[in-house]
């Protein structure tokens, strides 16, 4: 399957990845090869087969609506690159 550099750039932007021109070429080829491999599935007759969304045959895992202790502000913010008071601090977001 042919994947263009433009396709790679589009996906990279959605994923917030910065790629060098060399990487774009490299990944275009690699992604194309992976998708080409998956294409092979089209050769199979899948009529009557339900699309698989999950690999494990399991359903309905629930929890009851009962409050469990939270971990606390200190722990919640422990891994934050920046925090202030009880908030995570991020660059200014303007709408």
């Amino acid at each position: 399957m042919k994947i263009s550099v433009a396709d790679v750039e589009y996906a990279a932007r959605l994923a917030r990845l910065e790629l060098t021109p060399g990487e774009k070429e490299l990944f275009a080829g690699q992604i194309g090869a992976i998708l080409g491999y998956v294409e092979k599935l089209k050769e199979l007759n899948t009529e009557g087969i339900v699309p698989t969304s999950h690999a494990v045959p399991m359903e309905n895992a629930f929890r009851e609506d009962v409050v469990q202790p939270s971990i606390g502000v200190k722990k919640a913010l422990a891994n934050a690159p920046e925090s202030e008071g009880s908030f995570f601090a991020v660059p200014k977001v303007i709408e």
């Binding site: 919640a76 920046e82 202030e84 008071g85 908030f87």
Partner: peptide
């Protein structure tokens, strides 16, 4: 917005 004090003029996130 605007609730962070100090030198930080960014936005705060409350999850």
């Amino acid at each position: 917005h605007g609730e962070l004090s100090g030198q930080n003029d960014g936005s705060g996130v409350d999850l």
